[in-house]
């Protein structure tokens, strides 16, 4: 009984989180009382149209902004403590690579900040470049890589400090459909090896269904959590599943949710 209670302690816990932005006419309510739990090692998606506050929610989890009201706990501590303990790896919509650093040194950046020795940093970068399939590009500059490759570097960088929580803010939305689907598969294969908790923001229903254990569906004006969809697709997820009946049914169900909004 007690043991079960312990294992059920969530990794990320939001309790009636609201976010209000002051504006000229009236305050904009970006998020209204969002409560949700994310388990350790779970892959969840925050799905919704523009203006539903999904990015705001991710930024609150990352302690990049503070909510107007409500509580957030990460592994039992505050989001700030989790950030200071370097529990987060973040991948933004743009790769945000530093132009003056070669690919290898972009990946070692967080390790430098953590004070990891040079040999250790290089070994880790080598390993991660292998993982994201860019071993041959270690000594290129970011601008010498395609958009998809740059985003893979950003993922490798986010994984460098072995974060317990990977926060991804529409990481593939700037990429073409083919690249995006391939990177979805790569991301899952990486996650199956690393096993950390992933929160993935997207406005693509297919992407959310293909990747996640659970999809948090947000609706706009004001941004709020309108439903949670369990994705019963088995793992590992394969390309064939994209053409399966279950996949389409799940997508249709989620789309229906939005039409009701």
């Amino acid at each position: 009984m007690t043991e079960k209670a312990v294992t059920m302690i969530p990794e990320i816990e939001l309790d009636r989180v609201s976010m209000q932005y002051p504006s000229a006419h009236s305050d904009v309510l970006a998020l209204q009382e969002v409560s949700l739990n994310i388990a350790k090692g779970e892959f969840v998606a925050l799905l919704g149209p523009s203006g539903c506050g999904k990015t705001t929610l991710l930024r609150i989890m990352a302690d990049l902004i503070q909510p107007t009201s409500g509580g957030i706990k990460v592994a039992g501590k505050s989001a700030k403590e989790a950030r200071l303990a370097q529990k987060y790896g973040i991948v933004f919509q743009n790769p945000v690579l530093y132009d003056w650093r070669k690919v290898r040194h972009n990946i070692t950046l967080p390790l430098e900040l953590m004070g990891v020795k040079k040999a250790g940093r290089y070994r880790k970068a080598e390993e991660l470049l292998e993982l994201v399939g860019l071993a041959k590009f270690a000594d290129k500059y970011p601008w010498q890589l395609s958009g998809g490759m740059q985003q893979r570097v950003a993922i490798a960088r986010a994984l460098a400090m072995e974060p317990e929580i990977l926060l991804m803010d529409e990481p593939f939305s700037a990429l073409d459909e083919f690249t995006r689907e391939r990177l979805n598969e790569e991301l899952l294969s990486i996650w199956s090896k690393v096993g950390n908790t992933v929160v993935f923001v997207t406005h693509s229903i297919q992407e959310a269904v293909f990747l996640s254990d659970r999809v948090f569906i947000l609706s706009p004006h004001p941004g709020r959590l309108s439903a949670v969809a369990e994705i019963p697709l088995p793992r590992p997820r394969t390309r064939e599943m994209r053409n399966g009946e279950v996949f389409f049914r799940l997508i249709a169900q989620i789309r229906d949710r939005f039409e009701g909004v």
Partner: peptide
């Protein structure tokens, strides 16, 4: 975003 990245690394 580059500054936020730094912030996220504390």
């Amino acid at each position: 975003s580059a500054l936020e990245l730094m912030r996220s690394y504390a």
